[in-house]
Design a protein around this nucleic acid. Structure first.
Lengths: 152, 152
DNA sequence: TCAAGCTTGATGCAATTGCATCTATTGCCT
DNA sequence: AGGCAATAGATGCAATTGCATCAAGCTTGA
């Protein structure tokens, strides 16, 4: 019956809210970082992944999987991070094509300073607006919109 | 006690989900439009506002308020839309600085064709994943994250 | 009335993104 | 081994974004 696959009013509204709110929140956080003289959010995402990975480092293609950035985007972002001394590129033993990216001490420090600002933004923009239960519910519902969906 | 304003784990998770899911969904929709040889999502947003406004048209600064795009972004986007014949710029009687933007027949047609694809994306990506009640709940929760918050 | 300040919209220039393609390796299959 | 597709990452070029600033027209107040 539903050959046309027209979205329901509820779906349209949820979509619109999602797009608008996420854009607005992202911009607020971005603005706070900029006001503090810190790099943009994308840098944080990558530094976060690298910090979690530890001394072993991460391959660029793994960053692509985890951050959802485009390949060329990661490639150039890493070049900028390296130029700023926040990461270092190491050759990888068993694959002559690839490299391993490792965060430097300066990179960790930058990430720490970014988190001071970014974390506060999250607390203000999200943590202060909904209860813990409501936040958990948001996470659960959004998780089911992910691809692949998450149940947690 | 909470001087540092550190975000709770629930807030962090909800934020991360929100950022990741919105980006992923937006890209899916964008991809679908591109695959159909249609313009990007930003064009839809503007054409949608213009179509709602009707023959009276809308002032660019109103589009800025409604779409949350940056001023220079709207300015150039309208220039592209005009170059494509999707909108027309009319002088406004009582304000020599401004202009009124009105959607053309071709603009309405383009919007219609975009909606056929975009609406299907929304139905698939969101409508098919959650029930109407759940979608309403998502809208309500996200509404409270907006600035200014919405109660509905 | 007219100078100062505000609002509306455009634009020059640098940085970033997107697209397509390229090089270098690797792995596979014969 | 040798050829060939697949993978990892970089890059030239065009389009878009972001920033700062500009020009033009309105508004207000002395």
């Amino acid at each position: 019956m539903t050959e046309k696959a027209a979205p329901s009013p509820e779906a349209i509204k949820a979509w619109a809210r999602l797009m608008r709110v996420s854009r607005q929140l992202m911009e607020s956080a971005e603005e706070a970082l900029k006001a503090a003289g810190l790099p943009p959010l994308a840098w944080y995402d990558v530094l976060h992944e690298l910090a979690e990975a530890g001394e072993g480092g991460v391959r660029p293609f793994q960053l692509i999987e985890r951050t959802l950035f485009a390949q060329y985007n990661i490639s150039r972002l890493l070049a900028r991070l390296e130029a700023d001394g926040l990461v270092e590129k190491l050759p990888v033993a068993d694959d002559g094509r690839g490299q391993t990216i490792r965060i430097t001490a300066k990179g960790r420090e930058t990430r720490r300073r970014m988190w001071a600002v970014y974390g506060r933004s999250i607390a203000e923009l999200v943590g202060a607006k909904l209860s813990a239960d409501e936040l958990t519910m948001v996470s659960a519902l959004l998780g089911r919109l992910r691809h692949p969906p998450v149940v947690d």
